[in-house]
């Protein structure tokens, strides 16, 4: 009996491996390629000359004053890996990090004294969050406008054009994709200074 069970176990495992480990991913890959080729490849955004300049879903690091900045990242925007900082709510390291980031936001725009929208000074879960909240984008508008020689109104209009609302008014949160927003800024013509 023991040998019969072992043989059945090994053979069933092999058969299900072929079905679930080979046939299933092959069918899904083929379907994806046929119906959603762009998404299946990673939703790549390309420049006019075809160079890949990012993925629509992967947050890119920005540091120049004339670009909108994304969320703090535990992996410094390196998309080879991913993850959060995993600091507990009362960890002194968390408080110190948030304090430093608030100070950096104020230093970049000394006239702006309001509290900083929380998503701009807390690390995201993935380290690759592509979005910021509309509040976080508007907070940065005066700095970006000044660095690019645009009016604040122009920049705020651009932000409003890029706000994605909740799906069906219920799911998710209003958000702005930072890479797309910055690409739109560059398209306005006035380069970052």
């Amino acid at each position: 009996m023991a040998r019969g069970v072992l043989r059945a176990a090994a053979a069933t495992l092999l058969a299900l491996t072929v079905l679930c480990g080979v046939a299933y991913p092959v069918v899904v890959t083929a379907t994806a390629r046929l119906c959603f080729a762009w998404q299946a490849d990673g939703s790549l955004i390309r420049a006019r000359d075809g160079r890949v300049i990012g993925s629509a879903w992967v947050g890119q690091p920005f540091r120049a004053r004339g670009y909108f900045w994304g969320r703090p990242s535990a992996v410094a925007g390196d998309a080879r890996t991913s993850g959060g900082r995993n600091l507990g709510p009362r960890n002194p390291a968390l408080i110190a990090a948030v304090t430093t980031r608030v100070a950096a936001m104020r230093e970049a725009d000394p006239a702006h004294r309001a509290p900083v929208p929380v998503d701009l000074v807390t690390a995201s879960a993935s380290g690759l969050d592509p979005d910021i909240s509309p509040a976080a984008a508007r907070y940065q508008a005066p700095r970006v406008a000044e660095a690019r020689g645009l009016s604040v109104l122009q920049v705020e209009q651009l932000i409003d054009d890029h706000v994605e609302a909740r799906v069906l008014g219920v799911l998710g949160e209003p958000r702005v994709n930072v890479l797309r927003l910055n690409l739109a800024l560059d398209a306005l013509g006035a380069g970052p200074r």
Binding site: R85, L87, P89, D119, S124, D129, D131, P134, E173
Partner: peptide
Amino acid sequence: SAQAGGNMEGKEVRHG
């Protein structure tokens, strides 16, 4: 209406 607010450390903006 412009941000989810709350404890956003370790969370993603699209999920809030």
